[in-house]
Nucleic acid binder design. Structure first.
Length: 260
DNA sequence: TGGCAGGGTCATA
DNA sequence: TATGACCCTGCC
């Protein structure tokens, strides 16, 4: 695969939290199958977004030197096409947490409620199913996983999915409608919805605004105001692939590659 | 060791 | 639309 930086994309970029370095490779359970960063079947290439031409992205942010710089510096950073449910669970857990703790919460929930798999002597866990989470006890989940108030979000959202919420149809809806639908789920506000749309529904115009993106949009794009306002301005300025650009900007800001 | 901040959301007014 | 509460912990 051309220009694919597995460590950057799967581990450092904080768009997925369940990939683990084992030996000299990255491994995770995706959709009930063990997957490695070296896989290159059609499913893997799609998951790693290998069918997109990322060189075009540099031209798309030509009007914004800081964006162009971030995209150029982070060649090899892909935006993943994760299963919607997996992105949903991970980003509900992400709320008001730092990256190391999100990783540990995703792990704890998977270990407790997901299926175990063995790979080269290591145990890996898949994401818990909606059914499994829907029947979980809130207090017990809090005690075991330490996920705090997010236990209620997880359980309620899992119950909605079990009760017929059309999660698999979200990716085929118009963007605004998809976003509104996701936000009816417990624990899903605008930011989490945008992450699910970007990382789990192929909407490259989704633009998650967190504390880092808020700061960099203030400093480098002179955009201030509510996060919803910042999001709309980003779409207007950067276009329909603003989510892909956001990912480069987010990582550059968080790691000090660009000043804040 | 204390205290802040973290890929926010919800309830309330 | 704006404000405060919220589980817990990584990190300075």
């Amino acid at each position: 695969m051309r220009d694919f930086d597995a460590g950057l994309t799967l581990f450092d970029s904080a768009q997925a939290f369940h990939w683990r370095p084992i030996g000299d490779e990255f491994v995770a359970v995706v959709n009930g199958h063990i997957m490695t960063a070296a896989d290159d079947d059609d499913f893997a290439r799609d998951y790693f977004d290998d069918f997109r031409d990322y060189t075009k992205l540099i031209d798309e942010c030509a009007d914004f030197p800081i964006a162009k710089k971030a995209v150029e510096m982070l060649k090899g950073l892909r935006v993943l096409n994760q299963p919607t449910w997996e992105a949903l669970i991970a980003f509900i857990l992400s709320a008001n947490n730092n990256v190391p703790r999100i990783r540990s919460l995703v792990y704890a929930c998977s270990r407790e409620y997901g299926e175990a798999y063995e790979y080269k002597g290591e145990i890996l866990y898949g994401f818990p199913s909606p059914e499994k989470l829907a029947s979980a006890d809130e207090a017990e989940m809090q005690r075991i996983t330490r996920c705090g108030y997010r236990a209620r979000y997880l359980i309620q959202t899992a119950r909605s999915v079990c009760d017929g919420f059309p999660l698999d149809e979200i990716k085929n809806m118009p963007f605004d409608e998809a976003r509104r639908m996701l936000m009816t789920l417990m624990g899903v506000g605008g930011k989490v919805a945008d992450c699910v749309l970007l990382f789990g529904c192929r909407f490259s115009q989704a633009f998650p605004v967190d504390v880092w993106v808020e700061r960099l949009m203030n400093k480098w794009f002179s955009v201030e105001g509510s996060r919803e306002h910042i999001r709309r301005e980003a779409v207007r300025l950067l276009g329909n692939n603003c989510g892909l650009i956001q990912q480069a900007l987010f990582h550059a800001a968080r790691t000090g590659l660009i000043e804040l």
